[in-house]
Amino acid sequence: MYTPVFIDELPDASTVSSRKSELYRLTRARGLTELLLDGTTPWHDRACPGCGQDRSQSGNFSQALIPFHRCSHCNTIYAAKVPAQAPLDALRARLQAERPEAHAEADAGSRQEFEFVSVLNWIRLTEARAATGRPLAQVLDYRFCSENPAWPGAVARLAQNRGWQFLPLAPDSEPLADLARTLRQSPPDAVLLNAELDRSADPRALLQTIRDHAPEGTLVFVATSCADGLEYEILGADSPSFVPLDRLNVFSVKGFEALARGLGYDCLEISTPGRLDAVILQRYFTEIESAAVPFWSGFFREADRDRLRDLQILLQRSLRSGVMRFVLKT
């Protein structure tokens, strides 16, 4: 199994702050709370979505009235109470339609484009290395096209010699039945789950559907947030990336690996290519002067850009940054 490190320039702290605007956070938190309070949506309690440990053994906190736990066995952070997928999808679709910043974000321009290129290059390099003996001619994108409207256009411009199929968020349908049908009717060589597992009410069911309906040997590219990241270790729910509706599951490496292997997937690659832990933490500790965490508050207040970059690379090499990527094989 490979554990690649993705080395790039650190983004500016200024681009980080605009990443999740306060309006975005508040709107999403309100949406989730309304779903909780509306009385018609079914919610259910659950155990750790990674290793399955009972939640009574884990530490908890709450965000937007939703109870969250951090699993004491595998370190996954998860909402201990989740709505059914269909009303969740309906809420996501409504918020996306209302979201003026979705288009403004497209102007974030080169940084976003670099993220797109990073995902596409990740697929290209894995294809070369995986030695499955066949090219990844057809890739199915599951919902990232809805999360980021600029993505399909970028794919059309940048993806060479590869066919892409996009399965968007469709609020009035049976989400997993749709996915199963698509996998059977036009079997892809690879499936991309970019920034989707953290938003899923039932990640196990999503991965199980792909495992059951995609042809054997299909590669599944998973990019999701990572609870082992220094950002989450130090800030937990205070992390600016922690928007509850977008982070129903923040898997640890161990938790996600247990889930994937338990479903019968091979893990070909694990990485934590996050580039933001260091700059997010520096921003946090310089903005909140009263924040005191042994060693780290001083470290981040004094660190220059060079030191931040060294730390971020070390975090990646140690599988300790706030974003992770897995390549799984059915």
Binding site: T3, P4, F6, D8, E113, V117, W122, R317
Partner: peptide, 18 residues
């Protein structure tokens, strides 16, 4: 990574495997 005219932008992201 290419710019809009198709020219490589310096210092692309690299993948390191140890």
């Amino acid at each position: 990574r290419l710019d809009q005219d198709g020219n490589p932008i310096p210092n692309p992201e690299s993948q390191e495997i140890r």
